[in-house]
Design a protein around this nucleic acid. Structure first.
Lengths: 239, 239
DNA sequence: CGCGGTGTTGAGACCTGTCAAGACGTGTGG
DNA sequence: CCACACGTCTTGACAGGTCTCAACACCGCG
């Protein structure tokens, strides 16, 4: 059930059998949440974190004027609000983009991990730092990449992250976002997202139909994006 | 010497005398770095982290085409690359914007803290999560705020962060960035940054001359920005 | 006094947003 | 089985925000 999570961790460091047991033991419960439901509310005091077992979720910031910015996408294996363990409350919502299955991990059990498993603590600390690295890359896209390049970069990132959890086949994977939500990731309007998508399709780089994304020319896509996966920290090291 | 750092930590949680000693003991060395020098290189394996004692620094991502995006500004008291402790290398540079004084903290001593001081570990984990929250807010600015609002939001953020370390007087503080670097924070061109600055000045919201920023109408500035300081986690809580 | 970095201003081009209409596709109910 | 409704995708025309290029002003410093 937490295979994707373990795969993600073990991509970057060794996790001992004892640590794996500690992780499994930290889960108190499992839940299902419908699409468009709020997984983690903004602002409220939280006493547990949420591990995404299956489905897609997003960190969402709603603005006073009705606009929204998605600051990160989450897929199976991601601890969508591990940072709430030290922050105690979130500055954003986490929303389910599809029906999701999640595991609940009480903060008291995370706290116990920090008392008893220093290495596992560092591994989870690393995981939140990886989220921050993804945020920085998105800032680069939002600030300095053209709309087309930003979209290409997002697709390159997702291909790697999904590949780690075994959800990519021949550079193809499920991509359940509507164009409107894709636009919310990239800080543009849905209309413009649509046009950029057409550009990428027209250039023979991708195909995206019925929520399946196929990368037809990975090298070309990475070139358009100016993509460098260094920020995903794909090397296995003692943390 | 690390008063600013302690003030920042104690704004969000209690730090015991013993923990304070551990922090002081973790510093191996102190250095001075000139303006425009690189404090922390990108990509290289690092075995120490850098605590900013005095001066301004920035996390910088350089793009192939010569553009740059600053993803966070750092002021005295900030651990500019605490995240390198678990990441082992950085996906960005940290550059000195002014002459800086820094303290060096070897990763082995941080590791010892994670083995011996679980609470202090959580406090530092929190600190990196706070950086991530700032990244998210910048993503909102870059993606969804107008150029003028984004600039206003940055000034609002800096006022609070600098106030925590006692560097604000009557809503005025040193602001040593050139307009070009300000533009690099906001993902715009220097010319446009200049015009937006004029807008804010013209509206009587701020004055910025000879590297001093004075906020003349804080309420108005916050309104223009749509500013909500929730993401700065200004409440003191057991982490 | 001259120089280089920085700040300011203008005109025009370009990218992206806005508004609006229509196409497509899927599920529902008659 | 068809008609319809709704969400989503697509397209066009135009507006507006931001960028580009260029020139000039300002200022601290050697």
């Amino acid at each position: 059930m937490i295979e994707a999570h373990l795969a993600k961790l073990r991509k970057r460091d060794d996790i001992s059998a004892e640590e794996e047991d500690a992780i499994r033991g930290a889960i108190s419960d499992t839940r299902r949440v419908g699409a468009d439901q709020i997984l983690c509310p903004r602002g409220k005091d939280l006493d547990f974190s949420t591990l995404l077992i299956d489905g897609w979720a997003a960190r969402v910031r709603d603005l006073p004027n009705g606009q929204r910015q998605i600051t990160e996408l989450h897929v199976a294996g991601d601890f969508v609000d591990l940072h709430s363990f030290t922050l105690k409350r979130l500055d954003h919502e986490v929303a389910a983009l599809t029906p999701c299955k999640v595991a609940i991990v009480p903060h008291e059990r995370l706290r116990a991990i920090t008392e008893q498993f220093p290495h596992l603590t560092r591994v989870y600390w690393f995981a939140t730092n990886l989220d921050a690295a993804i945020h920085r890359e998105w800032a680069v896209s939002l600030g300095r990449r053209s709309a087309k390049a930003a979209m290409a970069a997002l697709f390159c990132e997702l291909r790697i992250r999904l590949d780690i959890i075994g959800r990519v086949r021949d550079d193809s994977f499920d991509f359940p976002l509507t164009q409107e939500r894709l636009a919310d990731c990239l800080g543009m309007t849905p209309v413009h997202a649509n046009r950029m998508l057409q550009d990428l399709r027209g250039a023979g780089l991708i195909a995206l139909y019925s929520r399946k994304l196929q990368i037809l020319n990975l090298k070309g896509l990475e070139e358009v994006a100016g993509f460098d996966p260094a920020y995903l920290y794909l090397e296995r090291k003692a943390r």
